[in-house]
Amino acid sequence: MPFAARAAGASAAKNACVPLIVTRDLRKVFRNAKRFPGALGALRGLFSPVYEDRVAVAGLSMEIERGEFIGYIGPNGAGKSTTIKMLTGILVPSAGEVEVAGIVPHRKRRENARNIGVVFGQRTQLYWDLPLVDSFELLRAIYGIPQDRYRRSLDAFIELLEMGDFLRTPVRQLSLGQRMRGDFAAAMLHEPPILYLDEPTIGLDVVAKEAIRTFVARVNREQGTTIILTTHDLADVERLCRRIVLIDHGRAIFDGPIERIKNEYGRERTLVVRFTETTSAPTIPGARLESVEGMTARFVFDRATQRVDRLVREVSDRYSVEDIAIEEPELEGIIRHIYTQGYAGEERSA
């Protein structure tokens, strides 16, 4: 299955140098009429509506190239799902521009749909009462997938996602992990060049999570599928994505390779020292004591201003030390820091 065969239609091939996904000042404001109860209330709401506005996406500009694997992260209510819904053509943007493979999704919804696969972890796209195979058959008819290609991809999915045991069970009887695998297969049966995954590993156990991670990593690597992944599990992101887009209050506050965000925030390192005896309130010049637990103390220092070798010398001169380790901040810690303290990347890198 060469990549060219699965490329996103003629318009995309024409603009091969244009990014696959482009948004410019994309905005979405949810406008909800305040509801009044009952039929008469509904009529009243129709004729003299009272609106409440909520800005979900507040001017988002980004460009995504073919074959990228983006971690799209941000706190609850940041506007991630809303963005994905605009990219998929579910929602019409309130302002700004969006183009996916040369198509404006909400204008040419059906054309766009051929290029994309979508998995919403929160909500299945499968038919509740049908066994997985029936849903797949229906999708085959919907996308007009030729019988031989259908068989080939389905067999591959059954093997990769280990779905053999529950293919004929009605979806409503499947466990969450089984259902999610079914959802993945359903989203990819037509071999879309773009895949949107909105919290696809939510509520899965470690084994199922790993199966799905391996699967998407492979799809991205071998088929060049462009993937946008939304998740609160930063281990997913760390494992799979090269680039992250971090949004908060509907605005992108960071967009770049994972290494960069780590570098900017990774100025802080932790020196973990294990003493040979209980030591209360140890000190090292140039480092801040974070905690002491039994014989282990944790010091935080700024990598840019303090030299590690000096700190190590300093601590071993002063105390009797059994073991020393230096911890790099994990993505999780960095992101937690940004969610609580706000992002200050601009000032820092300036």
Binding site: G89, I90, R110, E111, A113
Partner: peptide
Amino acid sequence: EGRFDRFFVRPFD
């Protein structure tokens, strides 16, 4: 219930 979403992401009316 938001289940209408799915109809937007498939290539039919």
